[in-house]
């Protein structure tokens, strides 16, 4: 069983507690307007547009497939800029064992690994296998997920997952569809399920004032989570929209004022959440 991996980040300070290696999988089942790595959404269609524009000849077409040669690449990302598919030719199909071999080098500098994306839950079997290997090596395991698959159906995966960092893009269904193209029923179902299992490590909300009513959504999300025992420990991350990496047509959205973020923070604090991080 293989998964398509966009890249592996050896050290990360922003994908869970402490220092972690992060595996970014390729492909996503949402299409968020503010996605800041839109090249991770889809799989390469081998159209070859990028081959023509690569300045160092790191890409070529062989048997109708785009082939990426890492040693010639200078990471200028021209290929990603010209791709009309929302994909990247620089991905790699990897087994869990192969991924773990790339993780191993970081031991003992890391305390765990985080799978992210794209959307990691598109590859539940590979993630489960990877987590088994990580656990054997004493590493903690986190998923950074949009919650669009039903976690209930993957008890094996959850057994080896220490926690899920879940995106709740918006509480109101209509706005969720506007932002992502999909309803949020499954996301909220997962939030409840994970909270009950004590595996809801973190809830993330990207605040985009032009796109939806942030304060209202934060409030509703807070009230929803409060029903579960131990909710105080769920880390809440409020992420201010920034235009870096966002597709041109959506990059004009404004970054929220610090003041409004602080307001949301104090709202959540009053509800009893202990850890609220503004980024």
């Amino acid at each position: 069983m293989k998964a398509v991996v966009n890249h592996i980040l050896p050290f990360s300070s922003v994908d869970g507690p402490g220092n972690r290696t992060v595996i970014f999988f390729q492909g996503c089942n949402l299409d968020c307007k503010y996605c800041h790595n839109p090249e991770t959404r889809n799989l390469c269609g081998h159209c070859g547009d990028c081959v023509k524009s690569c300045p160092t000849g790191a890409l070529l077409k062989r048997e109708n497939k785009v082939v990426y040669q890492k040693d010639k690449c200078v990471d200028c990302d021209t290929c990603i800029k010209v791709c009309k598919q929302g994909a990247s030719p620089k991905t790699k199909e990897m087994t869990a064992k192969e991924i773990f071999a790339a993780v191993k080098k970081q031991i003992p500098f890391i305390r765990g690994i985080t799978v992210s994306g794209g959307e990691c839950s598109l590859y539940p079997q590979v993630v489960e296998e990877l987590f088994v290997l990580a656990k054997e090596a004493g590493l903690s395991t986190l998923m950074d997920s949009n919650g669009m698959i039903s976690f209930k159906e993957y008890p094996g995966l959850l057994q080896y997952t220490d926690g899920v960092m879940l995106d709740i893009k918006c509480f109101k269904e209509k706005d969720h569809i506007k932002i992502t193209g999909h309803p949020n029923t499954m996301v909220l179902e997962n939030a409840a399920y994970l909270a009950q299992l004590n595996k809801l490590e973190e809830v993330r909300m990207v605040i985009v004032p032009d796109l939806y009513e942030g304060k209202e959504s934060v409030k509703k999300t807070g009230e929803f989570l409060r029903k579960f025992p131990g909710f105080e420990k769920i880390r809440i991350k409020l992420i201010a929209f920034r235009p870096m990496g966002v597709r041109k047509e959506y990059a004009h959205y404004k970054t929220p004022e610090q003041e409004s973020l602080e307001e949301m923070r104090s709202l959540l604090q009053k509800m009893g959440f202990e850890t609220i991080i503004l980024i």
């Binding site: 050290f11 300070s13 402490g18 220092n19 500098f109 305390r111």
Partner: peptide, 14 residues
Amino acid sequence: VHKNPEFVLDIVKG
């Protein structure tokens, strides 16, 4: 990293 000092400490430990 100001928001994640444990990141630095993990690197020191390793």
